[in-house]
Design a protein around this nucleic acid. Structure first.
Lengths: 156, 156
DNA sequence: CCAAATAAGTTGAACTCTCAACTGTTGCTG
DNA sequence: CAGCAACAGTTGAGAGTTCAACTTATTTGG
């Protein structure tokens, strides 16, 4: 939505930041996926395992999990099916709501995550934490929080 | 790579920033893709058109274009094939190097881009520019530039 | 307390992306 | 200048994602 006063274009500086943003976020994702590849995982799968590992009973409902990792329900269904085949997690029924499905990290999945995590954390450091000075890193946190907090005109 | 002195885990603050980063970058991408969807484009395709529109003769070599938009050559081939089918761009041969292929934005592609761009820019504003204060936005630029500049141990 | 609306999750087909193999071209090196 | 390595781009198969349709269960409201 544009009102009469909002300019159509970005300033040169804004555009510069925006392009850098595109390139850098791309690079971050590629680096992490690359490093996770030796474990036959991608970032999306890794996030699922992490969320489960932190949850009570290492279990989360499908739709709640989908929200947490920002994936569509359909995509989560497919991905969870794959991870289930690898025995990293299991599906169960959801107490109190027979529609629900509970995804649970297996012991094997937990052990696997313990193995992978240090490498992943190292990748995050390499690509995002180490290259950035402390003040700017804090600012990054604020920026990203603002993005999450913003309620968009279009979806209101 | 970890040396003896780098800690395995992130601090609570670092982890907080990291998670916020994951959620927010996800949201940004989803918002932009969502808004571009009404034009039957995704962000990757849009970027291709923009780069071409800015280049001399509205033309760029495939491999150069792949670098600019951060896509693999293979992916670019497929995407360009699709965009070519839509008549938004055309392939030509590359003067001076018979291996090369030159992608060129058609007039139709240019006109289409002119139509789409204002909506896209508005989306970028909504999701990233407007919610963030000026200083933090500048810091975001520095952060992203650092990520691009960082040379990674693993790829050295 | 029943009917309709909403919610949770899955399914399969169409589409996109990845990966490795392949063709043709250019550059290098002895 | 012959031979070989590296480069540019494409291809097709396999893997992953999206989208809309569908099933089953819960909630809502008349």
């Amino acid at each position: 939505m544009r009102t009469i006063d909002t300019p159509v274009w970005l300033t040169a500086e804004q555009q510069q930041v925006w392009r850098t943003y595109l390139g850098a976020t791309n690079r971050v994702r590629q680096h992490l996926d690359n490093e996770l590849r030796q474990f036959d995982l991608d970032l999306g799968e890794y996030e699922i395992l992490v969320r489960l590992s932190e949850a009570p009973y290492r279990s989360i409902r499908m739709s709640e999990l989908a929200d947490q990792v920002g994936q569509s329900r359909s995509r989560l269904t497919h991905t969870v099916t794959r991870l289930e085949t690898k025995k990293l997690l299991a599906r169960g029924s959801c107490p109190g709501d027979r529609r629900g499905v509970l995804a649970t990290l297996t012991d094997e999945g937990y052990a696997f995550l313990e193995e992978v995590a240090p490498y992943h954390v190292a990748s995050v450091r390499e690509i995002l934490v180490d290259p950035v000075c402390a003040e700017d890193f804090a600012a990054l946190g604020r920026v990203m929080q603002s993005v999450l907090d913003a309620d968009l005109p279009t979806e209101a």
